[in-house]
Design a protein around this nucleic acid. Structure first.
Lengths: 153, 153
DNA sequence: AGTATACAGGACTGACACGGTCCTGATTCC
DNA sequence: GGAATCAGGACCGTGTCAGTCCTGTATACT
């Protein structure tokens, strides 16, 4: 269903929560409490985010986690990539020639365009913007001059 | 991993193959042979596409499948929606208030923007364009007044 | 009319990733 | 040294996905 995993979903919630008060050290139980997410999952996700360089950790009694960079300098693309690997909407995109249909598949190049659109959409939104107060957003996106197609589930 | 299912992947291959020679009736075994995809899967997918109105079927001895509309009038968004349901990158997007974190979740509105970008990227590419020879197209997407993203695929 | 062909609509199954839990060790502060 | 906290795993149930198969129905040809 073209859906991000819950791990990523939670991760974004955690990061945006941290972005709300940068420079603050928060430990896992606190974060879990404040975001109403299950502690074991929170702990697991925080470890991943540290490993991927998005969070800095501090051990010991007064330890905790904090953003490794200002929220404006972290793009959603980085977050998603950290939590679910390379952004590739089809297998053949990060697959290096492993697709047995590649010769018969006339479609491959096209997916790159779609994939890039997704990637750029993610890259164009920073963590800071995920926490901004909502503003009236022009919902109509024009792509190639075509009247936008209504998508009715 | 933000990935479409193989069913959708196969479905797009089948549709683009049909788009290459519209008005032609092709039966399931032929299509499977020409696209090098497993027949049972092909058959299953074709049935879904008929049910969703993207293909027309013809029963009987000389039966087969053909596009229900010209390839230029079928968007990738329709195809994806037909094969995997509504385009919703997070659960809470098609979920009507079922998310127990909705009150604590400051992120929801933001996902709509990302989701819309993906949706519009899919809506902006027709089946016909999936088969065209590649051409340099600067598709400019404006997202909320932000500097436009260049999608160059 | 009868038969062969092809679609229609299911049920069914194995494999695998996801969501979630838990345990043991290493590090830091008091 | 002890308590608190992160680090890095292993582990498991569940659900979805990929794929197969079976039965029924409609059409064309002889």
């Amino acid at each position: 269903m073209i859906r991000i995993t819950k791990q990523t979903d939670y991760g974004i919630v955690l990061l945006t929560h941290l972005a709300g008060a940068p420079e603050r050290h928060v430990n896992a139980p606190e974060l879990a409490g404040e975001t109403h997410l299950p502690l074991p999952m929170v702990s697991k996700i925080l470890k991943i985010l540290v490993r991927e360089g998005l969070l800095a950790s501090h051990r010991g009694v007064k330890g905790g986690y904090s953003l490794s960079r200002p929220p404006g300098a972290i793009s959603m693309a980085e977050v998603v990539t950290a939590l679910e690997g390379p952004i590739a909407i089809t297998e053949c995109i990060d697959d290096n020639g492993g697709c047995e249909h590649s010769t018969a598949c006339a479609v491959r190049g096209r997916w790159h365009r779609i994939n890039t659109a997704l990637r750029e959409a993610l890259a164009g939104i920073s963590l800071a913007e995920m926490t901004d107060a909502p503003r009236p957003e022009p919902k109509l996106v024009t792509l190639g001059g075509r009247p936008a197609l209504a998508i009715t589930a």
